[in-house]
Amino acid sequence: MPTISPGIIAVLLAVTLVPASAAAQGPSAERGKSVFDAGGCLACHTDLKNKGEPLAGGPPLKTPFGTFYAPNISPDRTHGIGGWTDVQFVRAMREGVGPDGRHYYPVFPYTSYTKATEQDLRDLKAYIMTLAPVAKPSRPHDVGFPFSIRLTLLPWKWLNFTPGEWKPDPSKDAVWNRGAYLTEALTHCGECHTPRNLMGGIDRKRWMSGSADGPDGEKVPNITPDASGIGKWSVKDIEGLLSDGGNPDGDYVGGSMGEVVAHSSSKLSAADRNAIAVYFKSLPALPSAVPKKK
């Protein structure tokens, strides 16, 4: 009976294991679905209120700069992104630049998505390509001068946008890092919950402390662990809100947060919701940036 030395087993194992682990994985539509849900793409790019087809173009997004319409990003080759290469898609998400070289308005939160990993972005595109193409032209934005001129974006981008993948913090544990990655790169909680500076950029010094001009001019609450925020909430309370929209008092969120819960956070894994909650509990407590009504 021939004996196999442990050394040979190790070699055999190494050979069989290498392709799966070391090499970059090919895009996976299955993983991409969870990136898509976390990123909340559906709510902006679909006219859910009027039962529009998925990703065929979204409802009006009112901002102080004008009204924007998220375009058709279904896999249609003419009206959607069906003809885009992976590289073009990654560039749009990471650099805010379209295949024709135009600069996107930051209503499209590429300022967050820029932090997503290359793998997540490729998986995301693979998933979008499995959806039904919709041959429907995108609606033009309704934006006044000077913002109608995309070139006015260039100084904005230069001052307010740093492209690049998110870097984990080695001094924190894996759960915190997962929560921070999801929050910074995909779930874009900060796009609504953080006040903006005069230039319309996110004010990092007041991260998550609330905003007086959220979607449709709605007020968005402080969600730092301050008394004016969610200081009394436990990790479990935050997880609960993300899973079904219920706050610890029995009220249920509505407005744009209701949509975030329905189309994004309720679809995350329980582990990812836990990671986000752990990350939020670790944030510095800041006073609310939303002025109180008289």
């Binding site: 509505g254 947060m257 329905a262």
Partner: peptide
């Protein structure tokens, strides 16, 4: 309960109730 809150209450608050100010 898992559908009561989100559908019964959230289903109306999402389209019809503005956030607290």
């Amino acid at each position: 309960a898992a559908t009561l809150g989100p559908k019964g209450c959230g289903g109306c608050h999402t389209p019809f109730r503005a956030p607290q100010s």
